[in-house]
């Protein structure tokens, strides 16, 4: 343990990194799904997360609804939002090519950021539940209850998306269409329905990630963009088109950031993740966990 004063410090940073990284992971799965069907990086993913975080925050402030219970509302709301955004905006624009879709996503991000800061001020918000400060000891480790909950929620969301993609015909259709949309259409799979589905699930995952953020960290209207970038890095780690890969990529990114900040300095966390991103793109562009693309 050259870099760490003791094994327990190392373990503590590792666990914190894993718990935090799981949020990157679910945002990354959404990003990867949307990329599969639209071939664009949905740059507004992180901002939609923050929108979900506000949704959770205000429901908690105004009605006292528990953030975890809020998930049950958040998932259908963001599924629906994704469906509407795809049908109303992205489907029309997609016909004009990828660049207009990318611009639209960028515009959506700026619009959401501005709307949120006008409506709810740019001040940082955080949810204070009765259990926010709760933690417990696991041997030498201190585990925060809310972070553990956020991790459990992320893990459950990942598992559900994984099963959907593997076991259901529509899930298989989404995977097929991300490989070859035209061939899928020739088999009777409607590109617009697959696209709507992938986009809706992508936004629902942003919704879940938003609840996880609201549960654990303070946020403001502009916190989203950095999450989009981190999710993109997680996708690059995990390899495009893999649900589990994207999740593990997020977890790995969380660990790298945690370790890097401890060893070097907290201010370097972002520089370390982008550095790792570049290294992966240079040496293993197909991702760390997958086989080389065939």
């Amino acid at each position: 343990m050259t870099f760490f004063p003791s094994t327990s410090v190392f373990l503590q940073i590792l666990v914190n990194g894993i718990l935090y990284g799981s949020m990157y992971g679910i945002a990354a799965i959404g990003l990867s799904l949307i990329f599969g069907s639209m071939q664009i990086i949905f740059i507004a993913q992180g901002t939609v997360m923050i929108l979900a975080a506000y949704f959770t925050f205000w429901l908690f402030q105004l009605t006292g609804l528990d953030p975890i219970a809020c998930l049950l509302l958040c998932v259908p709301v963001f599924l629906g939002l994704g469906w509407i955004l795809y049908r109303g905006l992205f489907l029309r624009v997609a016909a004009a090519g990828k660049n207009p879709s990318l611009l639209l996503a960028f515009g959506l991000m700026v619009l959401l950021e501005s709307l949120m800061s006008i409506l709810w001020t740019p001040n940082q918000r955080a949810i204070n539940t009765t259990y926010t400060a709760l933690g417990f000891d696991l041997g030498p480790l201190k585990i925060s209850f809310t972070r553990l909950m956020a991790f459990a929620v992320s893990l459950a969301a990942t598992g559900m998306v994984f099963l959907f993609m593997r076991r259901t015909l529509w899930g298989k259709a989404v995977r097929a269409a991300s490989e070859d949309m035209e061939a899928a259409a020739l088999l009777g799979i409607s590109p617009r329905r697959v696209g709507s589905l992938a986009f809706a699930i992508g936004l629902a995952l942003a919704g879940v990630a938003g609840v996880a953020v609201a549960l654990t960290y303070p946020f403001d209207p502009y916190s989203g963009f950095i999450f989009s970038l981190k999710a993109l890095i997680a996708v690059a780690f995990g390899g495009l088109g893999s649900v589990v890969g994207a999740f593990l990529g997020g977890v790995l990114l969380g660990v790298i950031e945690g370790m890097g900040s401890y060893i070097i300095s907290g201010g370097w966390a972002d520089a370390i993740s982008y550095g790792a991103f570049l290294l992966v793109l240079m040496f293993r562009p197909e991702g760390l966990f997958g086989r080389p693309a065939t």
């Binding site: 298989k172 259709a173 995977r175 097929a176 035209e182 020739l186 088109g241």
Partner: peptide
């Protein structure tokens, strides 16, 4: 179509299942 256009990452069974979509 020309050039097979299979879903390379999906299994043989999954390719067939999607044929029955």
């Amino acid at each position: 179509p020309e050039g097979r256009r299979l879903f390379a990452r999906l299994s043989v069974r999954e390719n067939l299942e999607l044929g029955a979509f």
